[in-house]
Design a protein around this nucleic acid. Structure first.
Lengths: 239, 239
DNA sequence: TTGATACTCCCCCGATATGGGGAGGGAACA
DNA sequence: TGTTCCCTCCCCATATCGGGGGAGTATCAA
């Protein structure tokens, strides 16, 4: 049983943490406090830079990365489309790749029950805070119902800390797009060709190119598709 | 003073709510419970469709919309770049437009103290949950420190409800992509050219084209950029 | 067994996008 | 009053994309 004062104390301590080691030991403490097998916090993004901490065996974490499992992991895919925390049982495990992934995970010591909190930050940052355990459905349901709100808050504070540590990675984030650039990106994102976009905006195609290049530069993108992708995931345009 | 059991009760009730009126009356209750002048929940969206409820005078809400104040509102701008809730005093009010906005707001009965929780959902959804009051800095600081976590949670549950009501805006079912198609879309989304993607996946460029075309077909996309944009906004890939 | 779905490979060619330049006017901000 | 950013327009060469063909493997499920 976890009392609210305990949760408060944990959050206070989390707020004080100023090293990555502090987060790692915090998550171990949390796991013990809630009497679960595993607790994990990690960033999700297709680029290489991962950040996370938790109690999964390192072999599994490595294997996950090597296999690029986030591409097929139903937890990642499912949470990315949701706002509320979700029990793993409610996710879509029907695909072949998903079932293979699950078998693999359990071979590495991942438990049969899971509960994950999706967390979103500025600039399209996305992270997962997950609790994992081996037990019956009934026990798990009782556990998650009781601690759901604690877990939301703890995930939130965890993410706050992680953002503070990783502040160096998003230095020129405030780069916003000009109205015309937003127009251009938006129309490209809905499938218009350059000629169509230029026509829609009633400007020459040459002018349009300037906007696209400018947006590409601001977004640090390598090409138009990349720029549109970044604009969407940073929430600069809505499609 | 607000006890945790009260917060729990509120959250429970919030979860039960099934009408917009339910949210409106909930927010009035919350305002009274926390003894503040105003409490507001609203979506922030560059497009036209607003959604929100709260206790600001309707004149102010209308005026805000008419003046397109979200473009200059330091609360919106500041929260959009932050993850943690923020006291209005810590925002940047230095611009001329911001000061004019503030004067206008206070003329409409908006209090001098504010505390806003940024909330992010899938597909770039962004909302604000705000508490507003008139009092001294010391009182306000005590109030926000005491209830910060409650407000994060309440904001979260409010948003969850709002998303449920607005579920109609995301009707299209996600036609899932094959692992290879996900690979292709993901690599394209991070700026790789067709040749680079093919090389990275160790397949011929011709094969890659088959995947891209297949994904484009499944996503109903007109070109590669469109396909990537759809894959991202439907949560099929993570960038 | 048959059918469906993924995954892999190959040809040609025209349409389109990209990247490298340069240049001028206007609004806003300090 | 100058600097900075935004909007607008232009040329050219080449890399990339998109559309049209066709064909073989493997796995899984009906």
């Amino acid at each position: 049983m976890v009392t609210h004062s305990k949760v408060e104390a944990i959050l206070e301590e989390l707020e004080q943490a100023d090293t990555l080691d502090g987060l790692q030991s915090a998550i171990v403490m949390l796991r013990d406090l809630y009497h679960v097998d595993h607790m994990i916090y990690h960033w999700v993004d297709s680029a290489g830079d991962h950040y996370g901490c938790g109690t999964y065996p390192i072999e599994w974490a490595q294997h996950y990365t090597e296999q690029n499992y986030q591409r097929v992991d139903p937890v990642v895919i499912g949470c990315y489309q949701r706002f509320h925390p979700v029990d793993w049982k409610r996710l879509d495990w029907s695909s072949k790749a998903a079932r293979a992934f699950l078998v693999d995970a359990m071979n590495f010591g991942v438990g049969n029950q899971g509960f994950s909190v999706p967390i979103r930050g500025p600039n399209g940052q996305f992270a997962l805070f997950t609790v994992n355990h081996t037990c019956s459905d009934e026990e798990w349901s009782a556990l998650t119902n009781e601690h759901r709100r604690d877990l939301i808050l703890i995930g939130h504070y965890f993410n706050q800390k992680a953002l503070e540590f990783e502040t160096d990675r998003a230095p020129e984030q405030a780069q916003s797009l000009s109205p015309r650039e937003v127009d251009a990106m938006t129309l490209l994102a809905i499938g218009y060709s350059r000629a169509q976009v230029a026509n829609t905006l009633s400007i020459s195609e040459h002018t349009l190119r300037v906007y696209i290049e400018s947006a590409r530069f601001k977004l640090g993108a390598l090409n138009t598709t990349h720029a549109v992708a970044r604009a969407i995931s940073r929430g600069l345009i809505v499609v």
